[in-house]
Design a protein around this nucleic acid. Structure first.
Lengths: 216, 216, 216, 216
DNA sequence: TATGAATGAGAATTCATTCAT
DNA sequence: TATGAATGAATTCTCATTCAT
């Protein structure tokens, strides 16, 4: 180890970035698995393969680290949503695409759900402090508003729909099913995580949302 | 205290019950506020006004206490649902009543939401171990199935609706809005907890659910 | 329960004796298994099938209970020794009988060994306080002294043997083997508790002790 | 502290070792005095002059710490035994030396006796888990076997002596006297710990052991 | 004589965080 | 930038013991 030449400034910087990212990912997984209260700084360090002290060096303390994680996951989902290019699609397709995307994203990123849970358990105090979070998220509602407006103008969508209400409904339909799947399975004795159950849920949600939005 | 007559045997027995109940309520509040990981046994004892040791005497450990709390809150919501007497109403009214009830119950019992969250964070392991939880919850789906069937027979409801899917949707629409209201407020910069916002949400949900179920 | 007639004084007394004895036996087992520090009053109550409070009623506290247990087991071994009627045997037989008895008693009463250990860990403070213990044990040395004296007079035993030294040696040879059998097995990788191993040990000890005492 | 020169890398590494050792010694004394169940982690920390948390940092928990202590004391006695160089002595001298050494070691290291007691109270579960313990102890029996064999070949020792039996007897004669000296004193009313009593015991043991081994 | 409820002091262990280098 | 050693304040849980009947 001692005979590797000292890295030049740039490389050291890249190492620093890499370390920060490694920590962030490790923290995301730990917080997702155990919640804020149950997460352990020790385990985060182990997961990251880095010294615990380094976490404090980069993120100050557990709370700030949690906040950084939340920002990261929000940035990610909003980036992915943005890639959908919903404004280039016709309104009905755009809406269907958003329902599908939301479902699939939650399905593939279960950590997002638990992190959201934890954030809310703490009354979103970590997000409230984050200006970045607000900036990241507002465009979505604007986009959805535009889609609804275009659909109404076309005559395919009914009028008077609040985009925020609709977004909450779209998210809620996926969220509750996936977030509570363990509880529901335990309680109703039915496996909700088979491929068949998944496709049934997706159909159901599309029917509910589009049935609501479309004129008939 | 000293002037109360010595309690007869029956009442003394109930002391134990009363203590257990006091603990259970205190624990429910603490777990709801801080989650399983963040809850403190000390605080539960203080909230209950009882000795910490007594919690262990009656509930063995934190996990078991949490499980007991979950059973209690599930029992409560299912009892309240049962009181709705949904089977005596005509199908459309029954469904509307269920949507309203769910919304109002979650609104008035925010602790139910956070407890559910915590249960799910721990993959419902506490409920999976509880036979009682399963017994308590299954009748609901049966009831909903009967309502759907009667509506279909009448010709007012469409056919082919899975009662479990519908229940999850009804719950999900309220749940996400209320459970994530802090995050949503922080992110979208709009207060979701005003009376006006509440009544708008309820209308929206009724439209969504009934729009989906009713033939038109 | 309430319709059984109140027991008359004598019977109640007998019940009391029985309860005390039940507790004493339960305590003996618990102390033997876990030592004084590791023993649990709760477990003793459970083992005895009696209320914990009763232990305090009869024995005041843990320490006193331990002392009572020690007295009990000492009384028992000395009573058994007494039954050997060593003074009616010829010296060599008496000695051999004592070695065998000691070995067998320790073998059949492993709790005696651990209790002795515990007593010594606490510097015999519990026995020092017990006058009864002293009264119980002194006759043994007197008896052994008489045997040695008779053997010497007969010409079969050598002279100048201190009965206390001899007793300690007899006890020590059995005690160490049995008390440490777990350690020795772990350390030397040989099972010391097979019937064959037992009979070999007994032969060895007789040879050692009688070889020392007998003129040749 | 501030005027000591900054330690070089090697010394810093040894700080950890030194702390570990300090803890180990403190733990040994505490366990010896109070047994496993009666020992207090707090007191160990105080004895060591180190933070309690550090004990867990290095030794994980109380049981593991106890195991480490047992390994340490076994290593020590076996090292000391090894220094006797028994194989370079003539058999009779070697044996006498071993009896004397055992006696003196137990006398000077009373903690060894209580630790052994505690280990056995817990059925040597801590040693059974330790591979090191086995490795440390087996050479002793081999050495003793060789001594016996050489004595027999010379014609001074009788044949057919099991070295394990003999070792157990040598140890047991010292062990019981010293380990139970409090009980014996209490019971027989005689001080066993005077210098005179000690030298009498040592003579007695040598007579017993050598009387058994030597041809006559 | 017997019991279930209740308690305070304490015990092991945990955890976020800081020190020193 | 990176690390292993160290810490104080909690935190869960335990335990002998007492209360009230």
């Amino acid at each position: 180890m001692s005979h590797t030449p000292p890295p030049i400034a740039e490389e050291r910087l890249r190492d620093a970035d890499r370390s920060q990212n490694t920590i962030l990912n490790a923290a995301r997984d730990e917080f997702a698995e155990h919640g804020l209260g149950g997460a352990r700084m020790d385990r985060i360090a182990t997961r990251a393969g880095l010294n615990k002290r380094l976490i404090y060096y980069y993120f100050e303390d557990k709370e700030k680290l949690f906040q950084a994680v939340l920002e990261q996951v929000y940035r990610h989902i909003r980036e992915e949503e943005h890639k959908l290019n919903l404004l280039h699609l016709k309104p009905e397709t755009a809406l269907r695409r958003l329902v599908e995307f939301t479902w699939n994203y939650y399905l593939e990123h279960p950590e997002f759900l638990t992190l959201l849970n934890s954030a809310n358990l703490h009354r979103a105090r970590h997000l409230a402090q984050s200006q970045r979070a607000r900036q990241l998220n507002s465009p979505l509602i604007a986009t959805l508003g535009e889609i609804l407006e275009r659909g109404r103008a076309e005559g395919t969508f009914r009028g008077g729909i609040d985009p925020l209400q609709l977004y909450v409904s779209i998210a809620g339909l996926s969220y509750f099913y996936l977030s509570n799947n363990h509880t529901l399975s335990a309680i109703f004795g039915r496996d909700l995580m088979t491929p068949k159950a998944h496709s049934e849920r997706l159909s159901h949600m599309c029917e509910v949302i589009l049935g609501y939005v479309l004129m008939n």
